[in-house]
């Protein structure tokens, strides 16, 4: 006896007969688009895009109107507008990535990662000088800013999730308000507090302080989210076994949220790695590696890009693009790593 498997049917799914007029209308719109641009005085990319949208949306509307009536036609127009809006919103991302890769690759050569700028200036040929001093500076800034902001952020997040004191709402409000501080304000704050009237000069630690201010809200909010994901049962089990709250938090809650906390730090680092404005007031200048974070100027990738752009010459801007490509690779790496860790925010062994 032959068995027949009954496959589930999806009667709502569009059939080929339904889709044919849709794509047919789009193809017709594309053809008409080229014809109109060729014949009329309207020219340029804008004309192509705009006319394609008008024809495409118009044909779809007409089809729906004929088959289903006026309301279906309006529905179709709304859908077209939403698709058009999303397309416009996402176009800059493609352009940003493509331009950075194309223009940035021009100035890259192996030595770019091993040489500093003391052997060259911005107008030197592109096969001289490099960004090693900026890479070292950025790594220094990331490490120092993390060391400063991590304790404050995690302790604040623990207060918000473990103690839930009377001030929780207020503290939460302040942390959110802090996330809106413009980066330039963080820079001039450190300048006004520590550099303006003292004999101190810009150095790595000063810039790291400014960056830590920007990093704290990001890390706190993410840390708070992941700590909230730790099941309440675990805390209760710890307390029920006779552990103090401190023991419970230190040996159960924080280890359970470890991956999430790492994600929080990475997101914070990604937030500050590309910040430029605070560095202009606090970092000082250096064209070679400065291993001492407490005195003397330092370089950093965003600052390198800034100087290249400020230099204004063709070679300077080429260098800026190469610098931004390196910076973007760093940020993208952080982004991917944060995603990988973030997919398993809470891990219970």
């Amino acid at each position: 006896m032959a068995t027949t498997t009954v496959l589930p049917r999806k009667p709502w799914k569009a059939t080929k007969a339904d889709l044919f007029p849709v794509f047919g209308a789009l193809a017709l719109a594309a053809i008409l688009d080229f014809v109109v641009v060729a014949v009329t005085p309207m020219k340029g990319k804008i004309a192509y895009v705009l006319l394609f949208f008008i024809f495409g949306a118009g044909f779809q509307m007409a089809l729906k109107w004929r088959n289903l009536g006026k309301r279906a036609a309006i529905d179709s127009l709304a859908g077209s507008v939403a698709i058009a809006g999303a397309t416009i919103a996402f176009t800059p991302v493609l352009s940003l990535l493509a331009t950075t890769i194309v223009k940035g690759a021009k100035g890259l050569y192996p030595g770019f990662f091993f040489h500093d700028m003391s052997v060259a200036n911005y107008q030197s040929p592109l096969n001289q000088g490099g960004v090693i001093q900026a890479i070292v500076g950025t790594l220094y800034l990331i490490i120092l800013a993390t060391l400063i902001s991590l304790p404050l952020s995690v302790l604040t997040a623990l207060y918000l999730t473990e103690i839930r004191g009377k001030a929780s709402g207020f503290i939460q409000f302040l942390v959110q308000a802090m996330s809106g501080i413009p980066s330039v304000v963080a820079g001039i704050f450190i300048y006004s507090a520590l550099l303006l009237t003292t004999s101190l000069r810009g150095s790595t630690i000063m810039a790291a302080l400014a960056l830590a201010i920007l990093m704290i809200p990001t890390v706190t909010r993410t840390a708070q989210e992941v700590l909230l994901l730790v099941p309440q049962d675990l805390r209760e089990a710890g307390l029920a076994l006779g552990a103090t709250q401190w023991k419970t938090v230190a040996t159960i809650v924080v280890p359970a949220a470890r991956n999430g906390l790492i994600t929080a730090v990475i997101l914070g680092v990604a937030r500050i790695a590309g910040e430029t404005a605070p560095l202009l007031f606090t970092l000082g200048v250096s064209n070679k590696i400065n291993w001492n974070p407490f005195s003397g100027g330092q370089s950093a990738l965003p600052y390198y890009v800034w100087s290249g752009l400020g230099d204004g010459t063709e070679l300077g801007i080429d260098r800026a693009w190469s610098g931004i490509l390196v910076l973007l690779m760093l940020v993208l790496t952080l982004f991917v790593v944060a995603r990988v860790f973030g997919t398993r925010k809470v891990k219970i062994k």
């Binding site: 996402f90 800059p92 991302v93 352009s95 940003l96 331009t99 950075t100 223009k103 980066s183 990604a270 937030r271 790695a273 590309g274 910040e275 430029t276 404005a277 965003p302 890009v305 800034w306 752009l309 801007i317 800026a320 693009w321 931004i324 910076l327 973007l328 940020v331 993208l332 952080l334 982004f335």
Partner: peptide
Amino acid sequence: VVDLMASFPSILYGIWGFIV
């Protein structure tokens, strides 16, 4: 992609805005 856009450094938008 939206999250990625948020993590682009502002100087990238600056130089792209200026050149492109």
